[in-house]
Design a protein around this nucleic acid. Sequence first.
DNA 1: GACTAATCGAGACGGTACGTCGCGTCTTACA
DNA 2: TGTAAGACGCGACGTACCGTCTCGATTAGTC
Lengths: 211, 211, 211, 211
Amino acid sequence: MGSEAEPRAHTGRRRNEATRHAVLAATVGLLRDAEHGPLTLPVIAAAAGVGRQTVYRWWSTPGEVLLEALAEQASAQVPTPDTGSLDADLRVFLERTLRGAAAPATAPVLRGLAREAARDEQAAELLRTFTATRRAALRGLLLRHADRLAPDVDVDLLVDQVYGLLWYRLLIGHAPLDEDTARRLAEGLVAAAGVAPSDWTRSSTGPAGGG
Amino acid sequence: MGSEAEPRAHTGRRRNEATRHAVLAATVGLLRDAEHGPLTLPVIAAAAGVGRQTVYRWWSTPGEVLLEALAEQASAQVPTPDTGSLDADLRVFLERTLRGAAAPATAPVLRGLAREAARDEQAAELLRTFTATRRAALRGLLLRHADRLAPDVDVDLLVDQVYGLLWYRLLIGHAPLDEDTARRLAEGLVAAAGVAPSDWTRSSTGPAGGG
Amino acid sequence: MGSEAEPRAHTGRRRNEATRHAVLAATVGLLRDAEHGPLTLPVIAAAAGVGRQTVYRWWSTPGEVLLEALAEQASAQVPTPDTGSLDADLRVFLERTLRGAAAPATAPVLRGLAREAARDEQAAELLRTFTATRRAALRGLLLRHADRLAPDVDVDLLVDQVYGLLWYRLLIGHAPLDEDTARRLAEGLVAAAGVAPSDWTRSSTGPAGGG
Amino acid sequence: MGSEAEPRAHTGRRRNEATRHAVLAATVGLLRDAEHGPLTLPVIAAAAGVGRQTVYRWWSTPGEVLLEALAEQASAQVPTPDTGSLDADLRVFLERTLRGAAAPATAPVLRGLAREAARDEQAAELLRTFTATRRAALRGLLLRHADRLAPDVDVDLLVDQVYGLLWYRLLIGHAPLDEDTARRLAEGLVAAAGVAPSDWTRSSTGPAGGG
DNA sequence: GACTAATCGAGACGGTACGTCGCGTCTTACA
DNA sequence: TGTAAGACGCGACGTACCGTCTCGATTAGTC
């Protein structure tokens, strides 16, 4: 976004909710644009069509605005699938995750968040919290199928391979994050981490399941 | 670094090589410090104890200084091992790669490079080139053992899992890049990508070893 | 003054007279303080402990408030004496005028008025009107004794010498406006403007009196 | 003035004298215009066509610029006449003084100085110093003719009547400061302050001189 | 005695000006 | 000729203040 909005009506001595939303929306909009340089409060104010003092009144730093803006979006809610099969759960989760991250509405925001994290400690903390939440989700999924994993497998390593790949491709941009990638990645992780599956277990979801 | 250096003697009408090195060293030093904000030429000049005009005369942008500074370091030269065994080659390569990246002298520079890449397009291009070179090295290693890989394996996916993990942990900092990580990662990749290995090979490291 | 006042009770849909007086009193109080910067409506409102909108509702500019505030004071009413003697009338008038201007309650207000007149055209107009009134009073006094004045005397010059001295000393502050000044000034003016006085008149106050 | 000037060439690491003069000239120019509000450094910088930082580098406050700007003008050098005659000296001095103050090039600057003095303590101090110098000049002139003055005459009172009249008319603007005013004022002061002159002295200028 | 009407204190809001900070250009003085 | 030094114009940042606007509380008049 980054363009100005129409004027808003005052709300008297109460805080103007419309203004608040305009600021948060403009912030996410600016995060999308790589063109705009550092995310500063005056730039946010201008993009939101809001007085500078209004932004400074409610937020101290760009990081605070960012935190609230992204929280407002209830961003990237990837539900954890639960089909009973590790293979299927993982494949679905990765498909959803990669598709969500690569979506045109999301990818620029994630890139913008990383860009800000490289510049602003508050944004970096925000990014750390955000990624920790995502890692926990995937770790939970894997641990639900602990019986299918080798006993000494390093779950965190598996998790970081997934999100490492995701951010690496997202930021470098040399390769896609498509459905095929998700499928192959899921298979590879299962092959790397899993004990040889029992036939009957495998047969329930596996491609080679007995007919 | 980031601190001032002692004065250097003029060299008259010849370009002062000591000054050049001071600038490049100060640049790498600044890259290490997350404290310092954006890497700009005046900051570099001040850190090198050098006149601003001297820096502007020889380099146009911070990206150019960065390029020359990192090239000067011949940084992160990880030789590709060649033992004849995929498992061994991969394990050694990953151990060297992760150890090199996590080394106290290197990690802050890589983080600094990523930080600058988030801000400066030239630095981003530099980072893209650098990572492409590294990916090519690992891809070459894997392709040397193409007979050990499943015919339809996605080599790029394997490569990106490695460097994705590396950068992800390097930048988020939530988990280490130690030797154990390298070993487990190597095993996982082989398990994911490899055809069934010869027994004697597998038995040396494989989870199913030892009856 | 310039400090806040205690809260006042509402008077419903009638204009609150107490508020009006608080505003006017605060205005005069602020005029006294050279510390306070320009006299603006928000500053007046704050000093009066009154909502800004209340001030803006009843007055448009600081000049309007000032006009009403000074009119309220019916300030500096110097009655014109009439003893029949030019010397006595003039001496008494000047004593009263200088004493009034130099009084601790008045001098800071006059200085403040001059200060505002240097900034606000409305205040300047107010000051011009005020000074014109004062000049007219003194001119009237002198013209009542036209027979004692030389026929070609410039009455306006005499008047401006008086008020010029007054404002000059008031604003620069390098010399007092005391009773002795008034007496000597009166004598000087009579000497400068008067025809030779009747002996008995002169002998009453003149330097050559004493007998 | 108040308009922008053409760009100036840099002078390297030496202070740019052309810039300095541009700032001082613009300051006096702004002082002339009553339109321009308070004399602030950014306004001066804009009027001089100079970067703000350049003004802030060399002067801390508008008062400092003002001091230097007026000193640069070597302003209002009224040479003290010395003809041997009180009447003549005084008349000439007052004519020069009033003519100088009322001159189109000077009057607006004096008014501007008074305007700033009403707002800025540094400018007020400058005005006090300036007026003190002028008073001393006139007092010196009068004291040179102490034998012509009554022994108990208040010289300061005479001086302040002169400058009081000058500033009063200059600022209120209700009456002119012309040659006739100067002549009449001089006569009045001599009449007020002088002992009865010897006949031959009086006859030279006095209106009632026998002859 | 409820309802309307208008005042009052409070503070959010958009806009503007101020003083600071940093970048990149330019010119000098010196080696 | 190259280097250190620093003045300079420009623009962004964060703060302060002005005048407008709306809100909720309070009280005076009206039916």
